[in-house]
Nucleic acid binder design. Structure first.
Length: 282
DNA sequence: GTCGATGTTATCAA
DNA sequence: TTTGATAACATCGA
């Protein structure tokens, strides 16, 4: 679930509390967490201090003094949170960074898809996951948005999910964005007119900022940097609501596989084809 | 117990 | 270029 709004919420909740704190001890409990990074590099972080916490797409970037950056990808079920060392360690806790006082920064991930990568901050733009990301949604003008999408073929929803085109949108928010824009997830981008692009663009900005305001969506495992749940799950209009009534027209929400992911949408508000004009023959 | 699905994405084949 | 399948893994619900 960690999409842009969730990762941004983790960032905002974590930064003020770990900024200027030192790493006193490193306890890696599952070596597979490290990606393209040596254990010695991780252990060498003892004595480093956190400077800031950034986000790029769905990744978290923890900048340290001494010029290194820790990149966490939460994937499906990863959690990065600050806690007290008195808190019992879960069997899915894969990394524990002891900070000063009783504070610990922990990475927990039941499914073990998430990872940590450490690299020099200066090489950020050439490092693997970051260098292939498209622009941030909030940095895009409508013109840029249109030209990014127009350069590709295919259905709109799978394109919104592509991180190399636009960074940060995942399955939940793609569905919510398209619902608000009244665009069917399978609509070919080649058939979108300017007004429809405009609606998707406005909807993207609106949904993402609203989801950040509500501190993200907790479907199951997502937690912010202090272990708190989000609140946006109560505002979802279509995601996970198959068979329930569309909030606007009352039609049953449908679910369909689009680009090998589940897509939830209202078949009436999000039509694939415009209605044929009424027939006069009778 | 089994089966199918889950918010992500890299990789490979067609 | 695009798509679909697969894989990484644990958990949950039917």
């Amino acid at each position: 679930m960690p999409e842009l709004p969730e990762v941004e919420t983790v960032r905002r909740s974590l930064e003020p509390l770990i900024k200027n704190r030192d790493i006193c001890q490193v306890d890696l409990r599952w070596p597979g967490l490290l990606k393209e990074t040596r254990l010695a590099t991780l252990q060498g972080l003892v004595g480093s201090r956190f400077l800031k916490v950034r986000r790029r797409g769905k990744t978290l970037l923890l900048d340290l003094d001494r010029g290194q950056t820790m990149l966490f990808h939460l994937k499906m079920t990863g959690q990065l949170f600050l806690t007290s060392s008195a808190e019992p360690v879960d069997k899915h806790d894969q990394l524990i960074l002891k900070l000063d006082s009783p504070l610990e920064l922990r990475f927990r991930d039941p499914r073990k898809f998430g990872y940590l990568m450490i690299f020099p901050t200066s090489s950020e733009e050439i490092v693997n996951p970051l260098c292939r990301l498209g622009p941030e949604p909030n940095s895009l003008t409508l013109e840029q948005f249109i030209s990014l999408l127009r350069g590709h073929k295919g259905k709109i929803k799978p394109l919104l999910l592509r991180q190399d085109i636009i960074a940060g949108i995942g399955n939940i928010y793609a569905d919510e964005i398209l619902y608000r824009a009244r665009i069917h997830p399978e609509k070919p981008v080649s058939q979108l007119n300017r007004a429809e692009f405009g609606r998707v663009y406005d909807s993207m900005k609106c949904i993402l900022s609203r989801a950040i305001r509500y501190r993200g969506t907790t479907v199951r495992t997502y937690r912010d940097g202090l272990g708190a749940q989000g609140a946006y799950q109560r505002r979802l209009q279509v995601y996970g609501r198959e068979g329930k009534k569309c909030p606007v027209c009352g039609q049953a929400i449908e679910r369909k596989r689009v680009g090998s992911r589940s897509a939830f949408f209202c078949p009436r508000c999000q039509r694939l084809k415009s209605m044929s004009p009424p027939s006069h023959s009778r």
